[in-house]
Computed example of a mutant assay.
Amino acid sequence: MSRSRAARLAPVVEMAERDEREAARLLGRCQGLLSQAEVKLGELERYRADYQQQWIDEGRRGVSGQWLMNYQRFLSQLESAIGQQAQSVKWHRDNLDKARAAWQQRHARLEGLRKLVQRYLDEARAVEDKREQKLLDELVQRLPGRNP
């Protein structure tokens, strides 16, 4: 009986395995996208630091009003891009957290199903072992010289 219950659960376990694998793939994609967004943010921040260093170097030599206005305009655009990229990183991090939670949920469900199937198989094995032991005991009782 328990073995057939375990067999009936096989399609459910297979479906849970597919769901878990898909969730793991999505989790991997989200991790990759977050990494890309973080790299881009780092590049923008390094570019800003280089640009600010250029300001310091140029400032020592003296700058024109036009150069200063262009510098401030470009720095403002760069700050805006950094802010947008930081928002992108946050968005990707939130998506990663959601994907991780979904994977954990599917993984836990799969593990629960596997444990249930194993319990059914263990129960079936115990019933079968008990039946075999009963048969062996009956055979031993029927052996010649064993009758009281």
Score class of each variant (00 low, 15 high):
70 N>H: 10
44 L>F: 03
6 A>F: 06
98 K>T: 08
73 R>P: 04
72 Q>A: 13
43 E>R: 08
117 V>K: 07
59 G>K: 05
50 D>G: 14
76 S>Q: 15
73 R>C: 06
55 W>M: 12
67 W>Q: 04
95 N>F: 03
99 A>W: 00
84 Q>D: 12
131 R>K: 13
83 G>D: 08
123 E>H: 05
39 V>L: 04
30 C>A: 15
132 E>T: 10
77 Q>M: 09
44 L>Q: 02
32 G>S: 07
20 E>W: 11
50 D>W: 01
10 A>P: 02
140 V>G: 08
88 S>N: 13
23 A>G: 04
12 V>L: 07
14 E>F: 00
129 D>M: 11
52 Q>A: 10
120 Y>I: 01
14 E>I: 01
66 Q>M: 11
29 R>W: 15
19 D>Y: 06
64 S>Q: 02
80 S>P: 00
130 K>S: 14
72 Q>S: 12
52 Q>C: 13
146 R>A: 15
13 V>H: 00
4 S>I: 15
33 L>K: 08
146 R>T: 13
61 R>I: 05
41 L>W: 01
118 Q>L: 15
111 E>M: 10
54 Q>M: 14
126 A>P: 05
8 R>D: 07
110 L>E: 07
112 G>A: 08
16 A>F: 01
71 Y>I: 07
70 N>Y: 05
65 G>W: 08
72 Q>N: 13
139 L>P: 01
101 A>F: 00
67 W>C: 05
64 S>C: 04
13 V>S: 05
16 A>P: 05
126 A>G: 07
64 S>E: 02
135 L>P: 03
72 Q>T: 06
20 E>Y: 11
136 L>N: 14
35 S>Q: 15
117 V>Y: 02
92 H>W: 13
82 I>D: 00
94 D>K: 02
